[in-house]
C-alpha cells in the first residue's frame, strides 16, 4: 500500500542533548486514504508529532517522509512550498485571518501557489458548496459560528487538493452541535478517500472519524489499533 507518511526512528528533544525526548524515538507509517487519530494526555507529544509531519518543526533524529518526499532535510522555503502543495491543516482555534472574507481565506493557499484568481475562486466556490458555507462567502470569520469557522478552515485546508489533511483538535473549541457537524465533515472526507491525521482528546471523535488510532504517552506509542488488528 502507498504510504503518505513514513516516520523512521523520529525523536524530538527541546532541551539539551542529554534530556529525554518529548517524542519518540518513533516509527510510524500512514497509508493513503487512511484516517489516523492520535490521542493521548496533554504533554504526550501529539502536537509535536503533528508539527513534524506538517514540516513546521524538524526532528532531532530520524527521518520524516511525507507524500514520498523526505521533508526533515528541506529548507524553510522548500518546506513552505511542499506544505502548500501537499498538506492541508485545520486547527483547534481555526486560525482564520480575521481581515479576509471567507472566500479570501479559502483562496489564500491556492493564490500562494500562483493559481490564477479565477481558478482559485472556482475551487473555493466548489468547496464552500460542498461544505455548506457558500452563503457566508463574503462574510468575515468573526461573524460565523465556531462550526462554520471550522468548515471554512477545512475548506482552506483542502483548496490545493492536498495528499494529507492534518486536523489538530478540530472540535476542541466547539459546542456539541458544531462539534457534531465537524465530525460528520471529517467522516465524509475520509469516505471520499482523503488521508487524515487527526489529533484529539475526544475519543468518540477518534472512534467515529478514524480508521486507525494511536495513543501516545510520554512521547511513545502506547497503543496502536492497527498493530492490534494485525496481531
Amino acid at each position: 500500500m502507498h504510504q503518505v507518511i513514513e516516520l523512521k526512528g523520529v525523536a524530538k528533544r527541546y532541551d539539551s542533548a542529554g534530556a529525554a525526548p518529548v517524542l519518540g524515538p518513533l516509527t510510524l507509517r500512514v497509508a493513503k486514504g487512511e484516517a489516523l487519530a492520535v490521542t493521548g494526555p496533554s504533554g504526550s507529544g501529539k502536537s509535536t508529532l503533528l508539527n513534524l509531519v506538517a514540516g513546521l518543526d524538524k526532528p532531532t533524529e530520524g527521518a520524516v517522509t511525507v507524500a514520498g518526499r523526505r521533508i526533515d532535510q528541506l529548507s524553510e522555503h522548500a518546506l513552505a512550498k511542499f506544505r502548500r502543495e501537499h498538506i492541508g491543516m485545520a486547527f483547534q482555534f481555526f486560525n482564520l485571518l480575521d481581515d479576509l472574507t471567507v472566500t479570501d481565506n479559502i483562496q489564500l493557499p491556492a493564490q500562494l501557489t500562483g493559481t490564477s484568481r479565477r481558478k482559485a475562486a472556482a475551487r473555493a466556490g466548489e468547496l464552500m458548496e460542498m461544505l455548506g458555507i457558500q452563503k457566508h462567502a463574503r462574510a468575515y470569520p468573526g461573524r460565523l459560528s465556531g462550526g462554520e469557522r471550522q468548515r471554512v478552515a477545512v475548506a482552506r485546508a483542502l483548496v490545493n487538493r492536498p495528499a494529507l489533511l492534518l486536523a489538530d483538535e478540530p472540535t476542541g473549541a466547539l459546542d456539541t452541535v458544531s462539534g457534531h457537524d465537524v465530525r460528520n465533515l471529517l467522516m465524509e472526507l475520509h469516505r471520499a478517500g482523503q488521508t487524515i491525521v487527526l489529533v484529539t482528546h475526544d475519543l468518540s471523535l477518534a472512534e467515529a472519524c478514524a480508521s486507525r488510532s494511536i495513543h501516545l504517552v510520554d512521547g511513545h506509542v502506547a497503543l496502536d489499533s492497527y498493530a492490534q488488528a494485525v496481531r
Binding site: 506538517a54 513546521l56 524553510e76 522555503h77 513552505a80 512550498k81 506544505r83 502548500r84 502543495e85 492541508g88 491543516m89 486560525n95 482564520l96 485571518l97 481581515d99 489564500l108 493557499p109 500562494l112 501557489t113 482552506r156 485546508a157 490545493n160
Partner: peptide
Amino acid sequence: IHDLGVCKAIGMSPRQ
C-alpha cells in the same frame, strides 16, 4: 505574528 504563522503554516514561503 500569529497571522503570519498561520500564513506560513498554509504555505507562505519566507520570501513571500
